[in-house]
């Protein structure tokens, strides 16, 4: 069902042979239901086995194939070729170091994720034998959206603050902290605030909103970060008030 061919320009880089990245052009068939990832797989299988990129699920849930497609961070498995003109430019995710071709380094994100303690710190310990914590559908809904992050790092790539100030904890990590803070079972907010409300934390965010526009899972990290700011501000006022009252 190929109706025409389409040009794909891919940013290549091999630290062992290149001093800087360069563009390489491939001609691939255009299929109506192909996504950009299908085109990359076509290249890998039929044209150039030395092209490197990450992918796995092909259904927008594993988060492996984030890359810049015509300048915007996208999942290659969810970007349909039919939505583009005759030339598609594919680059590694912006703001991250390029390891090789479309593969970027993930260490920074992984260490930031660990710093915000993205796990349940129970309000009250309850032995497993006593069964589940109760949580109403409303309480679940309160944080559910923020638990949908697939760690694709597209929001970091969309966020100009992260690009300019790499120490910024960034949208996904803070959103996941917020997800646990909002969980009715959790009592760990104070511990997370050390990182989240620090100079490298939420206050680096100036609400550009690009993270939420780019997020392929509609997690709305920008919203989460503004909520964290409001909550942190209220904390500060409470603290001032209580010290004043003493």
């Amino acid at each position: 069902m190929t109706d025409r061919s389409i040009e794909l320009e891919v940013l290549r880089y091999n630290p062992e042979t290149d001093s800087e990245p360069y563009w390489q052009r491939y001609s691939v068939p255009h299929h109506h239901e192909w996504v950009v990832l299908d085109a990359l797989n076509h290249i890998k299988e039929n044209i150039d086995p030395t092209l490197n990129y990450r992918w796995s699920c092909h259904m927008a849930v594993c988060g492996s194939c984030g890359m810049m497609i015509n300048g915007s961070p996208k999942l290659a498995c969810k970007s349909f070729m039919r939505d583009y003109e005759n030339l598609i430019r594919v680059e590694p995710l912006a703001h991250f170091p390029i390891e090789r071709d479309l593969v970027t380094g993930m260490d920074d994100f992984v260490s930031k994720l660990a710093r915000v303690k993205p796990y349940l710190i129970p309000k009250q310990d309850k032995p497993v034998e006593e069964g589940e914590y109760r949580q109403t559908p409303a309480e679940l809904k309160r944080y559910k959206q923020y638990s949908m992050c697939i760690n694709c790092m597209i929001c970091y790539s969309a966020c100009p603050e992260y690009g300019l100030i790499p120490k910024f904890l960034g949208p996904a990590a803070i959103t996941l902290a917020h997800r646990y803070n909002l969980d009715s079972r959790d009592g760990g907010r104070e511990q997370r605030q050390e990182e989240v409300a620090s100079g490298e934390g939420v206050w680096e965010c100036t609400f550009v909103g690009a993270c939420s526009e780019a997020c392929p899972k509609h997690v709305d990290p920008a919203g989460a970060l503004q909520q964290v700011k409001i909550a942190s501000t209220i904390d500060w006022f409470k603290e001032q008030l209580s010290s004043w009252l003493k």
Binding site: L120, E132, T136
Partner: peptide, 22 residues
């Protein structure tokens, strides 16, 4: 059941009944 409850204790967002049970 023990394992699924354990996962719930670690924060897994299982769907709930109106009374808050899984």
């Amino acid at each position: 059941p023990r394992e699924l409850v354990q996962l719930e204790h670690w924060g897994c967002p299982w769907n709930r009944e109106p009374d808050g049970s899984v």
